[in-house]
Design a protein around this nucleic acid. Structure first.
Lengths: 229, 229
DNA sequence: GTGGACGTGATTGTATACGATTCTGGATCA
DNA sequence: TGATCCAGAATCGTATACAATCACGTCCAC
């Protein structure tokens, strides 16, 4: 049924996906060191495949590789955070319009299932999982737009957004997201491209303004890190 | 001066850059198999670092990794080609406007140097090198816009464009590019954002229309590949 | 008590080795 | 003659081994 087809090696990709999900669900904090031996032992693979997995994640900017130092879960700076949301603002609204024009019954069901799962996760108190599903919603929209190239970019941006939210989120219930997604799904189902585009634009703006992106935030970090900037 | 700083491992990145440049300059044709042992022998490194390099290139979609089959220089399909240029159209004009607003004397000099080098390469008959420099021009503009996240996306798109050009280019002198870049540099130097944006938009459209993107083009490929689609 | 030098342990970078999978070429048989 | 099938070779995926680098704690001089 789904024994994988074209994708690269299964072992390293599997580890990479597992780590990515853990990061996405905020089970691993930004800045955490990812020891190769440890990760390898957790997933029962050798350092060779762990290194490949970490490289994949580094390409998505989910982890940062420091030579002879190891891999660390990325800690996006304020500038990076702004850039990520600027990029999303440049891509996602248009993708949403495209998606509205191509929407099928199955697509609507898929998106609805995402929202339902997100609600269920929220009720179960699994905020991390809810966040992960919330991001999946955006990726799914890009996929429906049938633009895999841009969908991949958005996929990376969504993943990085998760890190940004972990670092710069300032209170406010995560519920608002669901409402925005609910409105979006209605516009998409109605094939109202312009409305969907506008809703996505506002949704991203809401997300951005819900962050505290003043310089020097939350964690004071280590002195050495603060100085070397 | 330039002993590398943050970047990851030097060995694999070095190999990856060398291969990328060769691909960019059309010294390696799309579809070419990249044998790990061969590549390793060429650069005097082991398969370990070659594999890492190939993975990097795979992330940029410059090579395609097929499990148990090896790495091949990517052969973008017509759909992928359209997607790449659509993505560029969504990102680069805006980046060009930003660049115009932030332009400094040094930036102008850098861009002019790129154009000069491109002309020199063209006169020397090194069309591959000229193409590589032509792409660098676009990447440099994104860098000047001070948006590294989007600049990285554009960097990947430019690299893929090189493959697309190798596959779908339909005659016409490469000179036209230089003219477009020359007009662009003037608008950028004048800090005329809207004009620069418009020029970039048209430049990308010109590029796109200079391709022959009808289905089933140029190379008939192997029978098996044609059938399994 | 403070500051620096040095050695040890830990961790990463690279190479090599081995098992698994795929491709190639020729022999066999209808 | 043509297709099928089966070895052998080639190539990839993963594990392990060794070398290089870095972090950290101890010791010593001042």
């Amino acid at each position: 049924m789904a024994p994988k087809e074209k994708p690269a090696d299964t072992a390293s990709t599997h580890v990479a996906e597992a780590l990515a999900e853990a990061i996405h669900e905020h089970r691993i904090a930004p800045g955490t060191k990812l020891n190769e031996d440890e990760v390898g032992e957790v997933y029962g693979v050798s350092r060779t495949v762990v290194r490949a997995a970490l490289q994949q994640l580094a390409h998505m900017r989910l982890v940062e590789l420091k030579r002879n130092r190891g891999a660390f879960v990325a800690k996006p700076t304020v500038k990076e955070a702004r850039e990520v949301f600027e990029a999303r603002a440049m891509l996602e609204p248009t993708m949403t319009r495209y998606a509205a024009e191509r929407m099928t019954i199955e697509d609507i069901a898929i998106l609805q299932a995402h929202i339902d799962a997100e609600h269920a996760a929220l009720r179960a108190g699994e905020t991390g999982r809810a966040l992960q599903l919330s991001g999946q919603f955006h990726i799914e929209v890009a996929r429906i737009a049938n633009q895999v190239t841009i969908a991949e970019f958005i996929s990376q941006l969504v993943a990085r957004s998760s890190l940004i939210i972990a670092l710069y989120w300032q209170r406010r219930a995560a519920l608002c997201e669901s409402h925005a997604h609910h409105a979006l799904i209605k516009a998409l189902a109605a094939k109202d491209g312009p409305l969907a585009e506008e809703l996505m634009k506002n949704h991203l703006l809401d997300l951005l303004t819900s962050l505290d992106l003043r310089e020097q935030t939350s964690a004071p970090q280590s002195l050495s890190e603060a100085l070397k900037q």
